[in-house]
Design a protein around this nucleic acid. Sequence first.
DNA 1: ATACTCCCCTGAGAGC
DNA 2: TGCTCTCAGGGGAGTA
Length: 274
Amino acid sequence: MPEKPEVITVARHLEGQLLHQKILECHVFWDSIIAKPSVSCFCQKIVGEEILSITTRGKFLVFELTHMILLIHLRMEGKFFFRKKGDPLQKHEHVEFILQDDVSLRFHDVRKFGRMYLLPKDTAYLEKPLSELGYEYTDPKLNEDYLLRRFQNKKIPIKSVLLDQRILCGIGNIYDDEILFLSRIHPNQEACSLTKKDCSHIIQYTKEVLDHAILLGGTTIRSFTSSEGVHGLFQNELLVHGKEVCPVCSSKIIKIKVQGRGTYFCPNCQKRKK
DNA sequence: ATACTCCCCTGAGAGC
DNA sequence: TGCTCTCAGGGGAGTA
């Protein structure tokens, strides 16, 4: 499940391959991947555009094109492969961009949950989905008072609130568990009950965990390989997610469901406060 | 405004 | 072996 570190890894890899490439053709084989505009409009408008940069916002890949912004959300299993124009379509390849020199960039997604948006440059950041996103974890405006304020009316578990991209964007299910473990907060703790100190820990460990993961190229878990030839190493660094024994106190790690998400925590290090 | 539920998809794994 | 059933998971839509 690509989270911020994996999305950054993919963006860097793609930018290295695609900078200043021009999109010559676009073919869509599974319509619902294209969220906006219609498939025909999407293909028509993207042809002729040049790729000027590839960055990220939250868990979106942001392709800056000549006149447009192309947003791609990989969701759980979206990835890219480079092939040659005319190569037979492989299973689960749903969108194809033909570039210069007969390069065929294929979007591959087993679950078909990935989404693409093509938006005009001048309004892309003012409309959904980008307009809904909260702060990046690197944003200096992300501080204890901001989190305290955003948490104050939330009676749902902190684990779920950290997954809410409208507050702090880029965290997914795996890093959420890691951040709460390091912050010594029970995943089911009501967000509104957190203290300023808790918020301070969350900010500190979000930065540490994500920075470290980005340095190592993200986490490669199960189906996720960020892109052809790209494999992260952070899975070796995970402390609690998917683990059996707490690396701090040797207690048995417990797996529970928090609002439908598989959640790992240490019952000794992450005691629930009331 | 918050907080639910349902839905999208497929492959892996369990159970028989 | 081969079938059926259940489940995971990010986020958008719809509803209370």
